[in-house]
Design a protein around this nucleic acid. Structure first.
Length: 198
DNA sequence: AGAGCGATGGCCT
DNA sequence: GGCCATCGCTCTA
């Protein structure tokens, strides 16, 4: 059976969306829709919080050169970089900028729109504002892990589709980092209840 | 409301 | 061996 919604959808963001300034991408991703065509059906949500990680930024995994773990960050823009942390969580990033430059955007929170029953099952809670309000939480809710590392976000079962630009974006410092903790590289949709923290 | 902390394992020096 | 781009629980107020 042919799935017409898989890759030819004109609403899927093209490679050029990601292959530019990382901070611009981090801001532009707000309001876009993260869509995963999973074994349990379509799971989707509106991106409401992101963080930029830059090549000369000590908090960025790629800032000290390429290693087996961070290699995807140096690859072609528009791919997923999913890493494992704290022994039990995964985090989803979009690779940005030019190939060879290790940069990306961490998707920190989404507002659930599709497959909410599956998310509730995966997360073990039915409180909507707690389902996907954090980078680890949203990966659990969507069922994302190392299997999704390096997936092409423009042509795989995991994509990001166009959406409505938010009315107002708030800029703050990033969460949960020790180095470069003072840089204003976190962005979220003002007033959205699915953001991880104010 | 906010601080502290344990769980848990891969990665890097 | 130390360090995490986390989360949820407990304790204190």
């Amino acid at each position: 059976m042919i799935d017409l919604e898989t890759t030819n959808d004109i609403s899927v963001l093209p490679r050029e969306f990601y292959a530019r300034d990382t901070i611009e991408v981090a801001r532009a991703l707000l309001g876009k829709r993260l869509v995963y065509r999973s074994e349990n059906g379509r799971i989707a949500g509106t991106i409401v919080e992101t963080e930029a990680y830059l090549c000369d930024d000590p908090a960025c995994h790629a800032s000290r050169g390429m290693t087996p773990r961070n290699a995807p960050m140096f690859g072609e823009a528009g791919h997923a970089y999913v890493y494992f942390t704290y022994g039990m969580y995964h985090c989803l990033n979009t690779v940005t900028a030019t190939e060879g430059i290790g940069e990306g955007v961490l998707i920190r929170a989404v507002e659930p729109t599709d497959g909410i029953d599956v998310m509730i099952q995966n997360r073990g809670t039915d409180k909507l504002t707690n389902l996907t309000s954090g980078p680890g939480k949203l990966c659990v809710a969507f069922g994302l892990d190392k299997r999704h590392n390096r997936l092409d976000l423009t042509s795989s079962e995991l994509t990001i589709e166009d959406g409505n630009a938010p009315a107002e974006i708030v800029t703050t410092t990033r969460i949960g980092i020790r180095l470069a903790a003072d840089l204003p590289l976190r962005f979220y949709i003002k007033g959205n209840p699915h953001v991880s923290r104010k």
